[in-house]
Design a protein around this nucleic acid. Structure first.
Length: 358
DNA sequence: AAGGCGGGGAC
DNA sequence: GTCCCAGCCTT
């Protein structure tokens, strides 16, 4: 008998019998639209071609996952805010870099209300070092919106989640699946790579990938299935040098690790990015980090160029600093120094129009 | 469709 | 050194 870790993890998962094959054949995926937010009606006929059948893939995946699964702190919760914080931190950031920062951030901001009240500067100060500092601002703005429009509780509908600042298609579904245990497929870089390589053996368009991911989810096991898929992509079907010998889908893989990588150019699979060293991004990061370290006093204008890493190019430093101010990541103080947008620390008032936290 | 956005670990 | 990561947003 195949063990089913999903039933151990997912309190609401029904103890049902067999995985049911649903959905449309792979050849029809492209014209299935729009992406359904819930399971479409079960069609009469068996549909997915043999290599893409969910049933053939679920048993090996569960067996593999029972021993290979990663123990990660955000897998211990179903709180939607805690899930959102994890997913926001994990955006383009490796798991190993998020783990040591996750719990300490949640201790400081245990719910949307606390982040809304604290203000952008405080959230940013707790974020510095994780990278992509805009995410901290977006998370804080989302917290304000959740307090103002949703009574301080994140909505469970992906389409509503997606309207929140910084919450796109992936994050909305990730919250729906990992907090509310929806039976949807999440497509990040790991899953996107896995689908392209193992399931279809060719690059996938956005909608194809999303529909296919949805169809593979065994009913009632969305949480465990997606966590297992992420683990399989991250640990076995890696971007470089995949461990095909250790893969539970080796017998059914449409690629098998030789020849051109079908994941190249497929949806959610990252493209090359510009060099970081010497970029504006690098200077921006230095300025925000230095502002966080300087506290309310801020960075003296005379130090900007040196702090940004361009001692011989103050014009560039000022331009980049102006951009950070424009985006709300930094602010000029009355003294003419550059600081985080609001004083970090307790005792701030709520933004005008915000309701009191519960 | 393409480019900007952090930073650190793997190679 | 280069590459890439539980993406999102703007142009």
């Amino acid at each position: 008998m195949v063990t089913d870790p999903g039933l151990l993890e997912s309190g609401s998962a029904p103890a049902h019998a067999a995985v049911v094959v649903r959905g449309a054949p792979a050849e029809q995926l492209a014209r299935t639209s729009p992406v359904p937010m819930s399971r479409p009606p079960t069609p009469a006929a068996p549909v997915l071609a043999a290599p893409t059948r969910s049933e053939a893939r679920s048993a090996p995946l569960w067996s593999w996952w029972a021993t290979a699964r990663r123990a990660l702190p955000w897998r211990e919760t179903r709180d939607p805010w805690e899930v959102l914080v994890a997913e926001m931190m994990l955006t383009q950031t490796q798991v190993a870099r998020v783990v040591p920062r996750y719990r300490s951030f949640l201790e400081r901001f245990p719910d949307p209300a606390s982040a809304a009240v604290a203000g952008p500067g405080a959230v940013l100060a707790a974020w510095v070092g994780l990278g992509y500092n805009r995410r901290a601002l977006q998370l804080q703005r989302t917290a304000v919106r959740v307090v103002e429009e949703h009574g301080g509780v994140l909505p469970r509908d992906p389409s509503q989640l997606e309207r929140l600042p910084g919450v796109g298609a992936y994050l909305a579904r990730a919250v729906a699946v990992f907090a509310f245990e929806a039976d949807l497929g999440v497509v990040d870089t790991n899953v996107g790579r896995l689908l392209a390589r193992a399931v279809v053996g060719r690059p996938l368009r956005r909608r194809e990938a999303q529909v296919l991911a949805d169809q593979l989810v065994p009913r009632g096991k969305g949480w465990a299935w997606n966590q297992a898929m992420l683990d399989l992509g991250a640990l076995v079907c890696r971007r470089r040098s995949p461990h095909c010998n250790a893969c539970p889908w080796q017998a059914d893989c449409r690629w098998a690790g030789s020849g051109p990588d079908p994941a190249a150019g497929s949806f959610a699979v990252g493209a090359r990015q510009a060099p970081f060293a010497g970029s504006d991004r690098q200077g921006r990061g230095r300025l925000v980090r230095a502002a966080a370290a300087a506290g309310p006093a801020g960075i003296a204008a005379a130090d900007l160029a040196r702090v940004a890493g361009w001692p011989d190019d103050p014009t560039r430093a000022e331009r980049v600093a102006a951009g950070l101010v424009e985006e709300g990541l930094l602010a000029w103080t009355p003294a003419g120094t550059l600081a985080l947008p609001v004083p970090a620390g307790p005792g701030r008032e709520l933004p005008r129009g915000a309701s009191a936290p519960r």
